[in-house]
Design a protein around this nucleic acid. Structure first.
Lengths: 174, 174
DNA sequence: GGCCGCATGTAATCTGTTACATGATTCT
DNA sequence: AGAATCATGTAACAGATTACATGCGGCC
């Protein structure tokens, strides 16, 4: 019912392009998304099974003569809604940019969805807010350790924000 | 036997300061380390139990009149060896800096261990190596997405390296 | 009377990882 | 002859999170 974790969203995204069976989903994942995300075959099968239980996908069997039957998964309307909802939401932490936010950008581009700059702006908003909070937090310079931790957070968030602003140029849409 | 994951190292670090019971370990964790790491009470108990099974700690019971008996854990020699080994090793990924590397710095300072700049230099080496590899990787600018991903990695690693160089100043030791 | 602090844990649930199991076809 | 590709999964293990269960003492 719940699934807050993201791998299922990635699988939904792949199925947004059309029905596929488990092996195919994994191949796509490995060839197109491997630079920022990895999932084992077994996990793909397990996730698809769970997602079917949750009504995000449905499957039908396709018999083949010389090979085991394929189980072809299609995304349901509920799945589509869920996916789009996810795709246009910013992530909460800097640490989620590398995989989860990347995946959102990837699918928005891959599925030719509108509003890339919208989500980038939302993400900038979230991180800017975090940066302001960190800057104003009292634990600034209690000791060397606090100071180091503080400057790490500032540095990582600032560099993420710079990158997001660059992104708007990379993904410029008219 | 194995434990590659880090929370147990944090608990070992806390016990390096002297024997403590579970509740106390958690209090220390919550008050001193909460800015960069969280562990629930239940998990502290579970981890200590596992660590005793692995010979990293030993426990003795201390009876109290009006309260439940305390179970006091002490670190073993094997535990100390393991901890120090961990504390002086750099982490492999930028994403491990915020929690795991921070914890190493925290304990090195807290336990007044020698060689802070040693581990910082090692960490700089690891990330510099990664940065060079990323810079030379062929997937540079295949498309907008690849380009964005590439520049994200460069940006985060570069900012981490700058921060590490700052750290050498924060933690300067004669 | 109720909440907080002290002090212990177990059990259930969820998720991920690794290994195992099967078996035909096609490429080298 | 052996490796890779196609195609499916289950089972065992490891780990984190959450909820549950217990109970006293002191404070407001």
């Amino acid at each position: 019912m719940s699934f807050k974790l993201s791998p299922e969203y990635a699988l939904l995204g792949i199925l947004m392009r059309g029905p596929k069976h488990g092996y195919e989903v994994h191949s796509y994942f490995s060839s197109e998304m491997s630079q920022f995300w990895h999932l084992s075959m077994s996990q793909v099968y397990a996730l698809l099974k769970r997602m079917e239980k949750n009504g995000m996908v449905v499957s039908r069997k396709e018999l083949q003569e010389k090979r085991p039957a394929k189980k072809i998964f299609s995304i349901t309307q509920a799945g589509k809604d869920r996916f789009l909802d996810w795709a246009y939401s910013p992530v909460k932490h800097v640490r989620d940019l590398r995989i989860e936010f990347m995946a959102k950008l990837f699918f928005i581009k891959e599925l030719k969805l509108k509003g890339v700059s919208g989500i980038i702006d939302k993400q900038i908003g979230v991180l800017q807010e975090k940066l302001d909070v960190t800057r104003n937090s009292k634990e600034r310079t209690a000791d060397e350790f606090q100071a180091a931790l503080h400057s790490f957070k500032i540095a990582q968030t600032t560099s993420a924000l710079d990158w997001l602003n660059q992104c708007k140029i990379y993904f410029y849409e008219n």
